[in-house]
Design a protein around this nucleic acid. Structure first.
Lengths: 377, 377
DNA sequence: CTGAAAGCGCTTACAG
DNA sequence: CTGAAAGCGCTTACAG
């Protein structure tokens, strides 16, 4: 078997030999071979022996130090340091039924949005003595479920998932095991799940209203696919809501759905502008900054400029968006803050300071910049 | 204690009650309270009972299926499925001294470079039955060491770290515990560590030679800090090497070091161009695409254009770089491939198929685009 | 091919 | 405040 080699390496390393000498007077190679054989790491009971206390006391020094006298505490810490002891997480987890692991499932690591959320979570979790398992679903709910199952097997004590679009089994498993979880990034009052994020629908209504107030009446939208992405569905809904109030709707030919790439943004823009000046939209609402930036690049190649020839909006406020020419009108969400809040809530529930996760709404900020203006007369 | 609440929840959940009924005839609430109390999850021995086999057999069905007869195998799988059993990772880890966890320590998640590497690693590891612990050092070696220690406590079986710039204790711990590891992203023949990546020095020599061959003689460089970043140090070295061969060096005033942001790129460019036309550099070598893009944005605002007024290069080939105007001359590294190779090597060593990690050099590709040309006469 | 039983390295009621 | 001992949920020599 493949794993035998690894075990053998450990079996014969220096630590293991030392240990054998000090605890097994009759120790011979044969005897050692018959024994189960540890992994060569220093164990808690060696610390206990060196400090002249029981294993229970060593454990308490690190888990409930207030229950141990100052003097003994020092002696044990000293011994642990001298032996360079690192507690074995599997042993701890098995005995305490606590793993101190949390999980997060995000769609992708490929943009700064979720990276910021993860970094916020990680800082809070690490302060709370937790480690983070990270899974990327690549926008595939089934893959997300697989990742979640793997995390459950590893005994995560809490889970954060981006968005609500996950197979029901995911939430059922979580509920069945009483694992606290939180939906991040999106927020809705009517969600059956605790969520920390913003209202995608309201945000896109707000963007649309900004364009309506500038006088735009012919709208187009370039969006990422809404299949298995509740956030996108909500965003499109928000656009429709606001337009409906003004008695407007987007024609099928002016609603373009495709991958969230610069290329798709560019190609879509070219397609929209291929229509006659009278027919083509004056305002283009993009599902995110990436698509909008792609459109702006195509515009430059076509000799078109915003806001002179058209207005355009994004969403995310990427670092480059406020620096681009024209500076992009977009909305910013504090994703790091979402991560921080999500992790804090999860830790509070795990620690029993709170009975359940408190949903929180984050309000995105609209940054009105050069890419939007009144339509040409 | 905070954790009591959690345990109590588990103690009284449905699964636990069922289990008690079926295994403890004299069971009363009092008896249950005296017992240690499981965590409510279905255990392997319940699967064994239902399938009428020993626990050893159940274990074998999932770990060494070839050792179990077809018939028994089916019965056990059936029972496991019916009970919805998920093996407890801590139990497995403790008994087998295998955690099936690997770790990766990267500087940041905030750009697509390392995200691609992580995604490459994750796909290979997941196919090999491994889960990934991810740690971000934020370019702080001490933070990286802390993360590595936390991972060792969790029993990672292998570790990938970006770059060689880590405290020696990190590599010492790894060696002491015989944990296979690999340095990723950078590669050098003389490294004491196995590495999978590219030669930063050679890459930047190549970029510099491209500019020299176009006829440039006055050079500037805008770089991220080289403190605790061996990759940056190598890159600057590569520039110097190539320039030295042509008898050229960069004046102190033309070597600008600062944060890897669009803003720093923009500010640095403005500063360089503030010099008189005769004195200022005609070629600007940037430490990465982000800095170069910032410089190009500043150029636009100053009414300067590449390659007419200056030439500029980046590194990374971000998605936006080939779409920007002017399209950026830069080098591309297949980071996903680095991740895939690193994970494959680590798994091969863990599985004993290989005695040690094989270093591999990846060759970056130079993309010559619009941002570089011959200097103005 | 299968089972009985020891053991992995910790924590935690329980007793003092 | 401290210790003896059981137990967490698995795997794995060993024996048949």
């Amino acid at each position: 078997m493949a794993s035998d080699r690894i075990l053998r390496l450990w079996h014969y390393d220096g630590e293991a030999l030392n240990k054998r000498q000090s605890t097994d007077v009759t120790g011979t190679v044969a005897a050692a071979k018959r024994a189960r054989g540890g992994n060569g790491r220093v164990k808690l009971d060696e610390v206990a022996k060196r400090a002249n206390v029981s294993t229970a006391t060593v454990s308490r020094v690190f888990n409930e130090p207030e229950k141990v006298s100052e003097e003994v505490r020092q002696r044990v810490k000293e011994a642990a340091r001298a032996l360079n002891w690192i507690p074995n997480a599997a042993g701890r987890a098995l005995a305490s039924r606590r793993t101190h692991i949390a999980g997060a499932i995000i769609p992708t690591l490929d943009n700064e949005i979720f990276a910021h959320q993860v970094s916020g979570m990680q800082s809070v979790l690490s302060d709370g003595g937790f480690t983070l398992f990270l899974g990327c679903s690549n926008y595939d709910p089934d893959e997300g479920l697989r990742q979640a199952d793997a995390m459950l097997a590893r005994g995560v004590e809490a889970l954060a998932v981006v968005g609500e679009n996950h197979p029901p089994e995911l939430f059922e498993s979580l509920d069945a095991r009483q694992i606290p979880y939180v939906v991040t990034y999106s927020y809705s009052k009517t969600s059956p799940h605790p969520c920390i994020g913003f209202d995608n629908r309201a945000a896109f209504s707000r963007i649309t209203e900004h364009l309506l107030s500038l006088g735009h009446r012919r709208f187009a939208a370039i969006f990422q696919p809404e299949i298995s992405n509740d956030r996108v569905r909500e965003r499109l809904g928000g656009v429709s809501d606001a337009l409906a109030s003004a008695g407007i709707r987007i024609a099928a030919k002016d609603l373009l759905i495709g991958p969230s790439t610069l290329e798709f943004g560019a190609a879509s823009f070219a397609q929209l502008m291929a229509q006659g000046t009278k027919a083509r939209p004056t305002a283009i609402i993009c599902g995110n900054d990436n698509i909008a930036l792609g459109a702006l690049m195509a515009a430059r190649e076509l000799g078109l400029d915003a806001p002179r020839d058209f207005s355009i909006t994004g969403f995310d406020d990427l670092a480059i968006s406020s620096r681009f020419s024209p500076r992009l009108t977009t909305m910013k969400v504090d994703n790091q803050q979402i991560g921080i809040l999500a992790a804090s809530e999860l830790l509070a529930v795990i620690a029993g300071r709170q009975a359940q996760i408190q949903s929180k709404e984050i309000v995105p900020v609209l940054h009105i910049r050069e890419s939007t203006g009144a339509p040409a007369k």
